[in-house]
Design a protein around this nucleic acid. Structure first.
Length: 101
DNA sequence: AGGATGACTTGTG
DNA sequence: GCACAAGCCATCC
């Protein structure tokens, strides 16, 4: 697919599925695990696309390096809280406790 | 080919 | 912690 490499997308989803409940991972972290440290943006792109296509992946467990949630997706916080992820008052994920690995 | 864009990251102030 | 800038990289027009 020209829109996004199938391999890459598949790997991203595979990693995301591995994230245990109550934990979160950053885009850069995932990108690094796949040998694409510089392509953190692609991870986000992959998740956005996949959610539009199927929406069957736990992409809510992926946040940016600051613990920031996806812009324009308030439901994500609810989902994470439901899994036991710690949140700060400002609405950020408590990476200190919940960052995966 | 070239510039704009973005679910990113890191560094400064 | 917030705002801004620079760096990176694939995609879109």
């Amino acid at each position: 697919m020209t829109q996004l490499d199938e391999d890459f997308l598949y790997q991203v989803l595979a990693v995301v599925e591995e994230i245990p409940q109550g934990k979160v991972a950053t885009y850069g972290q995932i990108a690094k695990l796949m040998g694409r440290e510089k392509n953190a943006r692609l991870v986000g792109r992959a998740l956005r696309i996949s959610s539009l296509y199927e929406g069957d992946s736990p992409c809510h467990r992926v946040v940016n390096s600051s613990g920031r949630l996806v812009p324009g997706w308030d439901e994500q916080k609810i989902l994470l809280v439901g899994e036991g992820v710690s949140f700060k008052r400002n609405g950020y994920v408590d990476l200190k406790k919940c960052q995966w690995e």
